[in-house]
Design a protein around this nucleic acid. Structure first.
Lengths: 187, 187
DNA sequence: GTTAGCATGTAAGGAGTTACATGATTTT
DNA sequence: AAAATCATGTAACTCCTTACATGCTAAC
């Protein structure tokens, strides 16, 4: 998760750890909260693996700032992470959301797969919860019922949201199964 | 988290591990997914700590089922977990949601504190995200904007939901600061 | 009689947090 | 010159998952 999000943000522009943490919080909100205790070790690990590099070979700059740049190897890793549209991605909210945040780097076909995969999962989930609610309703107190009902409503809301995005994708002319030859709007 | 949810479910009725896992999935959906690899060790740990006990002193029943009962000591622990209305509870979605599921065991005053605490957190969160969106908007692609917008909408939705529940609490006559002398409706 | 579901457990490992430790720079 | 904020890092620990290992019982 952190690997993905760090590589994704570094692809936009080189940044140092402190800056990354701020950006993470600003852009991703709830699921962008990572502590330095995981962020800094992640950066050094990615550097050791050759996925990122320090821009100013340690010490050239006034203030001690380790600015990291993504390498071609790192971009490849990022691509692989972004093209994964398996169940572990569509079934886990945060995993899906982070992929969505980087949709501009994702193939149109994979985008569609992810959106529909998530939609399908939510549909199944909604059904399962609606069923559970029906079965448990009279054995449960009002608070628990309210909580389950809220979960169902939320799933429905998300399904409509995904439908809107799927339609927008289609409008942009990329619903095909073959790798679309049309270039993406903005790089 | 698991401790709380296990004790909470066992307070309703004695259950064995397998049963608990099913119930967890049925009632809590997304945040009720725990593996046996954490559930069973949790049960044995709670048993060692004296918070739960096995009902049929191992071997009395046909099929090997370890049915656990919550003890008075366990109920005390559960109470303490449920009466905690600090920031760690109101700022973390799952922590809050699980408490809400067990509101029938929570003091009316704590319920109000939790609902308002969560509401306040979401309000701050919404504001922060709306601000970030304003600042980052023109530097971001449509997908990222959409994701942030969705996060804000969701927060607003949740705030309205909390408002409804706060009003329901007030209607039930428990908005006072002093420990309400009125007994709770259903045990 | 064999497949599916019920039922429990353990060992190794992953992915993060908390708490601690340090020091530079900017603001008041 | 003190306080706030910028900036990086490590060690211990928490909490959970995955993968493995086992055996019973119901249904087909």
């Amino acid at each position: 998760m952190l690997d993905l999000v760090v590589l994704g943000l570094l692809k936009e522009k080189p940044m140092h750890g402190y800056e990354l943490k701020q950006r993470l919080g600003d852009q991703f909100g709830t699921f962008g909260r990572f502590s330095y205790g995981s962020l800094y070790p992640t950066l050094t690990r990615l550097a050791k693996a050759g996925s990122v590099e320090m821009e100013h070979a340690k010490g050239e700059i006034k203030r001690r700032k380790n600015v990291y740049v993504i390498t071609p190897a790192g971009e490849k890793i990022l691509d692989e992470l972004l093209e994964d549209a398996g169940p572990s991605v569509t079934e886990e909210r945060n995993a899906f959301m982070v992929r969505l945040a980087f949709f501009r780097y994702t193939k149109p076909e994979t985008r569609r797969q992810l959106l529909e995969g998530r939609r399908g999962y939510l549909q199944t989930y909604r059904l399962k919860m609606a069923n559970s609610l029906k079965n448990l309703r009279d054995r449960m107190d009002a608070y628990s019922v309210e909580l389950m009902q809220h979960g169902i409503t939320e799933a429905e809301h998300d399904i409509r949201w995904l439908d809107d995005m799927l339609e927008a994708e289609r409008r942009n002319g990329n619903g095909s199964t073959t790798p679309a030859p049309t270039p993406e709007g903005a790089h």
